[in-house]
């Protein structure tokens, strides 16, 4: 009897061992992941100091607000399996697609990037330890998460109505996925004197970013993802010397909205100056 029990235990242990030996994603631990976002404008460090100007397509501009939403973060492990995590869960009033009142729980871990506030590091949540090869995320807020009532989101949550720079259209339901603006030099005196703004939103301009990158997360060892973002890349196909291209609140200027949205994926890359793990530096759209 004891012999048969020992065999049974040994077989079970072997099964457990084999299951636990998934090299891609460990189920034996987890760790926090922090995104370090190295902000640049055509290779020059981003600054929102009004006196700091950047040459974008031959036009001098300065930046004032620099914000965007990152959502639906997914890591692809070495088996090619997607791994995602849930946020804290926020239940708020929302509208469904038929504009009926509903209660909706935001499960996604959403990040509001505020680089105009000098914040370069963002908490991406707690992830299973393991080896990952790709990172996917979206710039913007998708589906019902974009139809919640921001007035009822507790202060401090990324989706709460911000009190400095507007993050949600009052007159047009939905979040500003990408908000970059500032001043542009219109008279050639090297001093920005008129406003420019790209405030991008609505579902049609939601874009996914895919970054190929080896990322090893070890249990209880805080992980860091270093990415570079080049805000000049967003404006690559926008001519801010043209008054008709200076102001885009999305629906009022579809050509500029399209031009910026189509550059989103190429604006991201692996941060080469602070890279901590090996891997390619390509970003896929």
């Amino acid at each position: 009897m004891n012999y048969r029990n020992n065999i049974f235990i040994a077989v079970n242990l072997m099964v457990l061992f084999l299951v636990g030996c998934d090299a891609a994603t460990s189920d034996t631990g987890s760790t926090t992941l922090t995104l370090n976002l190295n902000a640049q404008v055509n290779g020059k460090p981003l600054s929102t100091d009004p006196g700091t100007t950047f040459d974008v397509n031959g036009t001098l501009i300065s930046f004032e607000s620099v914000r965007m939403y990152i959502s639906e973060i997914t890591l692809i492990n070495s088996n090619g399996d997607p791994v995602s995590i849930l946020g804290d869960g926020l239940t708020v009033p929302a509208k469904n697609e038929d504009d009926e009142d509903i209660s909706h729980t935001v499960q996604d871990h959403i990040v509001l990037v505020k680089q105009d506030a000098g914040i370069d590091s963002y908490d991406l949540g707690t992830w299973p330890a393991g080896k990952y090869e790709k990172i996917h995320f979206k710039i913007g807020i998708a589906g019902t998460n974009n139809r919640i009532d921001p007035s009822q989101v507790p202060a401090g949550h990324p989706l709460a109505k911000q009190t400095d720079y507007n993050n949600h259209w009052n007159w047009n339901a939905g979040y500003l996925y990408l908000r970059i603006d500032g001043k542009v030099d219109t008279d050639g005196d090297a001093v920005p004197d008129d406003e420019w703004a790209v405030h991008l939103g609505t579902e049609r301009f939601l874009r996914q970013v895919m970054v190929t990158h080896d990322l090893i997360l070890e249990a209880d060892q805080p992980g860091i993802l270093d990415l570079s973002i080049d805000y000049g890349e967003f404006l690559r196909n926008v001519d801010l010397s043209d008054p008709d291209q200076r102001i885009c609140h999305t629906m009022n200027n579809l050509p500029v909205a399209n031009a910026v949205a189509n550059q989103i994926s190429s604006a991201f890359s692996i941060s080469t100056d602070r890279k901590r793990t090996g891997g390619s530096t390509s970003a896929d759209g």
């Binding site: 509208k95 009142d101 007035s151 007159w171």
Partner: peptide, 18 residues
Amino acid sequence: QLFFWDGGSITLEHQVFG
């Protein structure tokens, strides 16, 4: 159900910001 002449606000609470 929707607020303002164009329905651009989704709740009575949310319309306050306008």
